[in-house]
Amino acid sequence: MSCIINGLKDEARASTGVSSIVYRWLDETGIPKGRGRKSKLRNGRIQQLTETLAMFDRMGCRPTSKESIARPSDLRERLDDACGRYGNQNAFVLYLGFLSRLTDKAM
């Protein structure tokens, strides 16, 4: 987990862009186009996590048991809580907020 968190910084640029499939998925799930989305997707860790969530969602990998259904919701709540604790004026919190929205859309 710390490897992921260490990658959530502005300097962690991805060497490639996300696929058109991911952009289509983001459009379909209602993540608005704009500078914010574009800047977050330049981060390598965010890019990897977004691609993973998009592929899980497109393949229909949905939680089925009560426990596995609660996990994405719990993750979203924890991400939102962390955003509240760290304020809103830094890249780390902006990335967490973006991941929270993605998790909500994918699960």
Rank of each mutant, 00 (worst) to 15 (best):
E77Y: 06
A82P: 00
L8D: 02
R78K: 15
V22D: 03
F56D: 15
T50N: 11
M59C: 11
K105T: 06
L75S: 11
A54S: 15
S68G: 02
T50Y: 09
I5W: 09
S73H: 11
G7H: 09
T64C: 02
K33F: 08
L79G: 04
R45F: 05
N88W: 01
L49P: 10
K105E: 09
P32W: 02
D57T: 03
G60F: 07
I69D: 09
R101P: 01
N43P: 07
C83L: 07
A82K: 06
K38G: 08
T52D: 12
M107P: 10
P72F: 09
S100V: 04
G17V: 02
R71V: 14
G34N: 11
E67Q: 15
S15H: 04
S15D: 11
G34I: 06
R13G: 02
D80L: 09
I5K: 12
L53R: 10
N6K: 13
S68R: 11
K38S: 12
R37D: 06
I5P: 00
A14F: 06
A106V: 04
S20N: 10
I4H: 02
A106G: 13
R76S: 05
G60Q: 10
P72N: 13
P72T: 11
M59V: 08
L75W: 09
G44L: 09
A82G: 00
G7W: 08
K33R: 10
A70Q: 15
M55P: 00
S20E: 15
P32Y: 07
L96W: 01
F56W: 14
L79S: 02
A12N: 14
Q48I: 07
L96Y: 02
I46F: 07
S68V: 02
T50K: 04
L41D: 08
S39P: 01
S19I: 00
R42M: 13
C3H: 11
T103Y: 07
V18L: 01
C83N: 03
R78N: 14
K33W: 07
L99N: 00
G7N: 07
A14S: 15
K40R: 14
A91Y: 11
S15K: 14
I31H: 03
I4V: 15
F56I: 10
L41Q: 01
R76G: 00
M55A: 15
A91L: 01
T103H: 05
I69Q: 15
L41C: 04
S15R: 07
T16E: 12
T50F: 08
G44W: 01
M1Q: 06
L53N: 03
A106K: 07
K38E: 15
N88A: 05
Y95V: 00
K105G: 07
G7C: 05
S73I: 14
R42F: 03
V93R: 03
T64W: 01
F92S: 00
S73Y: 04
N90I: 01
R24A: 15
T16L: 06
S2Q: 11
A91I: 05
A91S: 03
R35D: 08
I46K: 05
A106N: 08
F98E: 01
V22E: 01
R62S: 15
R101H: 10
I46C: 10
G97M: 06
N43H: 04
V93W: 01
K40W: 04
I31A: 05
D10I: 07
D80F: 01
D81M: 09
Q47G: 15
Y95A: 11
T16I: 11
L26E: 06
M55C: 09
L99P: 00
D81G: 02
D81I: 03
L79F: 14
I4T: 08
